[in-house]
Every structure is written in C-alpha cells, then in structure tokens.
Simulated assay, not measured.
Amino acid sequence: MGKQKDFEYSLTCGSPSSARSEPEPAILLIGGAEGGKSGEDAATKWFLEKARGGNYLAIRTGGVGKQASFISRNYRDYVHSAAELSIDSREAANSREVEDYIREADALFIAGGDQNLYQELWEGTRTEDAINYLINDKKAPVAGTSAGMAILGSYYYAPDHQGIISSEILDDPFHFNTQTIHKSDFIQVPFLSNVITDTHLDRINKRNPETRYGRILGLLARVIAADKNSLDNHAIGLEEGAFVAIDKTGIAKVFGNGTHRGQDAYFLSPNGALPEQMEPGWPLVWDNGGKAVKVYKIAGTPEGTGEFNLNDWATASGGHWEYWYTLGGKSGLRKKSS
C-alpha cells in the first residue's frame, strides 16, 4: 500500500498483469446499499466473468475501502488481481501513475461516495481519460454503485450538499438545488447517452424523508428542458440493492430479491408530450392524460431476469409497463398501469 500525492493504492491479491485479458464490454448499474442483498452474488459473478480473469480495480475518494478485499475473499478465482485506488485531488487525478493503474484494469468498479467530488476532482483529467479508455477502447466492463452509478449517465445530478427531495423538485423543477444537473463529456458510456440516472429510490430515513420516485421524474423533466425540449432523453432509476446488467448488445437484465417489494429497476421515457407547466417558481405539471412518462418496471431476481433494450427503449420483457405523471407539486407523483 502506498500513499502520496493525494492518492492511495492498495493491492489485496495477485499482481497486476499487463497481459491483455481480452475483457468483454459490459455495464453494471447498482442502486446502492447492495451489500448482502439477494442479487449481489450472481450480479458480481456476471460482472467479473466479463473481465476474463484480468485485473479488478475499484476507484473512489476518501481513502481505500473494502471493495477489493471483498472480491479477494469471495471471488478470487475470477480475477488475476484485485486492487483499490483512492484519488483525492486533481493533482493526483492528473498523475501518470494513477492513469496507469486505471489503464491496467480489466474490470473497473466506481464506488459510492460523493458524485460532486468525483466531478470536481476527476473531470477533465488523466483519470477521466483513463476511464473512458477502458470503456470505449479496451472495452472493459465498468460498474458503478450509488455515486459511482450517478456519473455513468451522460446527464448526472451532483449536488453540492443534501440532494433535492421529490416534493421540492415537483413544487419547483428549477429549485435552487437543481443547478448541479450536468450534461458533460465526463464519462462516455455506450447506451447511456441522453440518460440521467438516480439511485436509492426507495430510501427513507432521517436525512431522506421521501422516496425519490418523484425526484427522478423531475430530473427527467429538467434534462428535457436543458436539451431544447428534446423528447429523446431517458432516465434509469434503481431501488437499493437492485443491479442492472447491460451486455455488449445493449440489453439489460435486473438482479434483485425476486419480489415486487424493493430491489426493482425503472426505465423512464417521455410519452410524446412535453410538460404542460415547466416554469421557475411554479409546480411541475406533466400529465398528458395521465400518460406523461412510460415506465418499464422490472422486479429483479437473485438469478437475473427481464430484458430491456436500451437501443430502442421500447422492446422489453419480464416486467410491466406503467405511466407516471404529476398534476402539480402538491399532488406529487401519480402512477397507473398501462
């Protein structure tokens, strides 16, 4: 383990090899709080199999964590090596050594934490270049959980402090706490162009008094407005413990607990109509006869189930379609079956 220049690297098993393992491209989106959840084992194996016995690397800020150790203890046969890298300044993110650590990886896991820090410290650096090299040139599988998932969409929400809650964005889609919705060239992920993601959809606690289902609807409305009212924008929202596995053809399946109570995935597309009311200081009204946004919900299973085609955002199986809409901030999010 070494710490210098505001980065920390920890190798937990094996020795990184520069030999090309010929990994298979894949994306694994994780809704957060996944440790010990029903689909974690199968989803992790699905992801590691794409590395073809290569080098596994987890990246984060704030010091190395336990992700690489988790892989070393439980999935040693799937990887040549497992390591973790904490990148804690722009100087570190621009260092050749950090860039080389990332480029050597055959599977990359972006940990949870603070997506605002990821953007602030990594965007426009050698770290960003190395991540995009893995995804688009080396074709290595990449996973992200919580904040790590948030930055994989071409749009992402990176609040400077406590994130906006559903009632706030539905009451005012231009609420001051939405100014950190970004469209950038940060991470370039196939099949996630014009997509904004959100995680922890079902979390409720002292810091999160409301679920985030209404929030993701509001975020999608903001993305559409930012893109000159283009309806060619989408959203993916995951409950905690849900895993969306996207293969090299753009087909997604979902790992979860096999019930309709938690660990589900939602794929959102506007249903041909712009919001009827979308003005600063006024509640969001997006009705379209109760059919504003088409949403495909897949209740994942421990083995992985369902199919959703991210090439056309229409072909799907193993779940069900529903409509989401809102008649104004006080009414909140409304849902109905298609």
Rank of each mutant, 00 (worst) to 15 (best):
E128P: 06
G39T: 00
A19S: 14
D41P: 00
A105D: 08
G31N: 04
L85P: 02
H80G: 15
A26C: 14
I135Q: 06
R90L: 05
Q115P: 02
I71P: 09
S72E: 14
E24T: 14
A140F: 09
H80A: 14
Q119M: 10
Q119P: 00
D137N: 12
S86L: 02
A68L: 11
A140Q: 11
I87G: 11
P25R: 10
S18A: 15
P141C: 08
S15K: 15
F47A: 13
N116T: 07
G53A: 05
E49C: 08
L85N: 00
T125H: 06
A143R: 00
E104W: 09
R20E: 13
E123L: 08
E84D: 08
S21W: 00
T145C: 02
H80I: 01
G32Q: 08
V79L: 06
L11C: 14
L108H: 08
E97P: 07
L117T: 11
D41Y: 00
T145E: 07
S81Y: 10
S81M: 08
L29T: 04
F70N: 12
K139N: 15
R126F: 09
A83L: 09
K138I: 01
G124A: 11
S21C: 12
E99S: 15
T44P: 06
I27F: 13
S81G: 11
A19P: 00
L85S: 01
L48K: 12
N55P: 10
G65I: 07
G63S: 08
Y78G: 05
E24Q: 13
V98R: 02
R20L: 13
Y75A: 08
A26M: 14
R60T: 03
E34V: 01
Y56I: 04
G32T: 07
L11P: 04
T145G: 03
I102G: 00
N136L: 09
L134T: 01
A43G: 05
I27K: 13
S89E: 09
S21M: 11
A19R: 12
S21P: 01
A93C: 03
Y118C: 04
A143W: 04
I135F: 06
V79N: 05
L121H: 03
A58I: 06
D129M: 12
S69N: 13
V142H: 03
V142K: 02
E104V: 03
V64T: 15
G53P: 02
D114H: 03
E40K: 00
G53T: 01
A92K: 07
E91P: 00
S18E: 15
I59Y: 06
T44G: 11
P16W: 01
K37E: 12
Q67L: 13
N94C: 11
K139V: 10
I59L: 12
A58V: 09
P25T: 07
R126N: 09
T61S: 09
N132C: 15
D129S: 15
Q67F: 15
I131W: 03
S89R: 10
A140V: 06
W46A: 06
E128W: 08
A43V: 01
K66I: 11
T127W: 10
N55D: 13
D114N: 15
S15F: 12
G65R: 10
A42L: 05
I30A: 09
L28I: 09
A51P: 03
G124P: 08
R103I: 04
K138R: 13
E84V: 05
Y78E: 10
